[in-house]
Structures are given as structure tokens and as C-alpha cells.
């Protein structure tokens, strides 16, 4: 706040510099108490930097042995086997199947959630009756706070029986396409079902970002579209949607980041199998987060290191996705 006093903005404003008078520069001198205070606040604010550094540092330190032992095959192999007790078979750890599984499930989630998020945000911003908007927005916010374990139990008991039926229909009509083919006719706990559940869970966050950018669409351009005789949908299509495009992409990436890191819900509705699988209706899948949750309990110290390494991979994956997302979202926002 105080720093703006030192600028020469007032001088420019009054044209003083035009007549050759250099304005006096104000120098802010702070007392000791302010210096201490500012230092304290800065130290507290940098706490998140320390935490992020510690997370990557410690997981790297714990998982380093694994990266050294398996090298690049940790990423390319999908075999996850602890050493046999009698020492006959050595341990082998690779996260390829889980990495692919994470992306398959998250991409399904995003593909389902984004069209609905667009509809919901357009509805809330432009179509819903005024009296309903506040209530509906509040409900959306409350849905966003439903814990993932409850989504998981609901997905397992209520969604899955329905989704198995839809899977069968999809497989019946589109089974010739490899994506919808299944090696064995088991449709429970498939990536498709997990993706659908994740779509419902990430919808609020994608919607909130989309709604924010849609609401910032320039009012005069919308009115201009109406003035030229456009229908409401015409105004949406020519003004609001193009304006909100980059924001929507950012929100989508944010949702992708959430979906990649989701643990308990995926653990409950997805069958963890260490095999790279692109048949989304088959009961074979997994993601890195649910791998950690399911193996953690009975892991040997060596396997625990492998889980730490997997956690590190997940951490960097979500960090990169989130970084891209926030960059896009921040750029798409109109400075206020």
C-alpha cells in the first residue's frame, strides 16, 4: 500500500514533468516494529514453499532407492510384485499400468463433466430465473463439500448397478470398437464407472471456474448481439462461449488435477489390476492414488519405498497439471 507513494504517477497526471520540474521522491522509512511485522508475515507466507519443498524432498529421499534399482522401467513396467517370502522371486515394481489407469479414468471423468459443467454454468448465469439462482448456486457449493468417501459408498451401492446396465448397452451396440470391447463379460468396477463417479465429483470445481469466466463476458457485446437481432443462444454462441473458452480449458485442467489425485472413491469402485488396459468397460483398472491406499497397509519396508516413489510421481503429475490450469485461469480473468 505504502509503496505506491514513491511512484511519480501524480506528477504525470498533472503534467508537472512537462514543464521540466522533477517531483520530489517520497521515501518511506519504516519503523522497527513494521520491519519485524513484515518479516514475520513473509516468513509465515513462505511456509507453503517449505511444505512443497519438503514433500518433494522427502518423497524423493525415500523413493530414491527404487528409482536407482529399477531405473526407467519403474515407469514402463506394469508389474507390481513384492518379493516372495522364501526369496525365490525378487520384488519388482512398475507403475505403468497405474499411470495409464489414472489418465484413462480422469479423461473419462473430464469428457463427461465438461459438457455438463458448460450447461450448468450457462444455466446458472443466463437461463435460470433470477429468484432461483442464489439457491441453486448454494446447493452447488454444498455438493462440492460432500466427502469423497460418501461419493464412494453411493457409487458402489447405487450408481454401479445402473452403470453396469448402461455398460452392457454400450458394449452391445459399440462392442466392435476396441474402446468398448471387453475380454470377459464382467462390467462391475470398471474405469467407465469410476470415471462417471469422478465426473460427478469434479463437476462443482469445473462449473465454478466456468461460471466465473462466463459471468465476465462483456455485457455490451451481448447487448450488441441482441441489438443485431440475435436470439439468446446466438448471443451465447457468438459472445459468451468464445469469451470463456480459455477459462473453460483452465477449469477443465483443474478438474483433471482433482481427478488424478482422487483416492477413496476410485478405490471403492475400481478393480485394481496391474495391467495396462484401454477397454474402459472391462473390470480392469487402477490409479496411482488408490494403489497407494490399497497396498499401504501390508507393505514391506521396500514396497513402502516404491509407494513413496509412486506418490512422488503422482505429486509431480498433479503439480504440472495444476500449474498449467492456474496459469490459464489467471490469464483468462479480467483484471478487476
Amino acid at each position: 500500500m505504502l509503496d505506491s507513494w514513491t511512484s511519480d504517477a501524480p506528477a504525470k497526471l498533472f503534467g508537472v514533468s512537462d514543464i521540466g520540474v522533477t517531483p520530489r521522491q517520497l521515501k518511506v522509512s519504516r519503523g522497527t516494529s513494521d520491519k519485524v511485522f513484515r518479516g514475520f508475515i513473509l516468513a509465515g507466507a513462505l511456509f507453503s514453499l517449505i511444505v512443497l519443498a519438503l514433500i518433494s524432498g522427502f518423497l524423493m529421499y525415500r523413493g530414491f532407492g527404487i528409482f536407482k534399482d529399477f531405473g526407467f522401467s519403474f515407469f514402463t513396467s506394469s508389474k507390481w510384485e513384492a518379493a516372495a517370502d522364501d526369496g525365490s522371486a525378487p520384488a519388482h515394481f512398475g507403475v505403468a499400468a497405474m499411470l495409464v489407469g489414472s489418465f484413462v479414468v480422469s479423461v473419462i471423468a473430464v469428457a463427461i463433466a465438461v459438457p455438463f459443467a458448460m450447461a450448468v454454468s450457462l444455466f446458472l448465469e443466463y437461463y435460470a430465473p433470477y429468484s432461483l439462482r442464489y439457491v441453486l448456486t448454494t446447493i452447488l457449493d454444498l455438493v462440492a463439500s460432500i466427502p469423497s468417501v460418501i461419493w464412494g459408498i453411493w457409487g458402489y451401492t447405487i450408481l454401479m448397478p445402473h452403470a453396469v446396465g448402461w455398460s452392457k448397452t454400450l458394449n452391445h451396440w459399440l462392442g466392435w470398437f476396441p474402446l468398448f470391447d471387453v475380454p470377459a463379460p464382467i462390467f462391475e468396477r470398471s474405469p467407465f464407472i469410476a470415471g462417471m463417479l469422478l465426473a460427478m465429483m469434479i463437476l462443482p470445481i469445473v462449473t465454478s471456474v466456468a461460471r466465473e469466466v462466463y459471468s465476465q463476458a462483456p455485457r455490451d457485446q451481448i447487448d450488441a448481439a441482441y441489438g443485431l437481432g440475435s436470439s439468446k443462444w446466438g448471443a451465447m454462441r457468438t459472445v459468451v462461449l468464445p469469451f470463456g473458452k480459455s477459462g473453460l480449458i483452465g477449469g477443465t485442467m483443474l478438474g483433471l488435477g482433482r481427478a488424478l489425485g482422487e483416492t477413496v472413491a476410485v478405490y471403492l469402485v475400481l478393480n485394481l489390476v496391474f495391467k495396462v488396459n484401454f477397454h474402459i468397460l472391462a473390470s480392469v483398472g487402477g490409479n496411482v492414488a488408490s494403489l497407494i491406499a490399497s497396498r499401504f497397509g501390508e507393505a514391506s519396508p521396500y514396497e513402502l519405498k516404491a509407494l513413496m516413489a509412486a506418490g512422488l510421481v503422482l505429486f509431480f503429475m498433479t503439480l504440472i497439471v495444476n500449474f498449467i490450469a492456474t496459469t490459464i485461469v489467471n490469464r483468462s480473468k479480467v483484471p478487476s
Partner: peptide
């Protein structure tokens, strides 16, 4: 930027850390 990055830390990674 740091707080935004921190909001993306998956919950299981926080536990593992």
C-alpha cells in the same frame, strides 16, 4: 502461486508425506 499449487496436492500425497 504457491498456495494455488498447494491446493492441488492430492490428499493421499499429503498423508504419505
Amino acid at each position: 502461486f504457491l498456495t494455488q499449487a498447494m491446493s492441488g496436492v492430492p490428499s493421499i500425497v499429503a498423508g504419505l508425506f
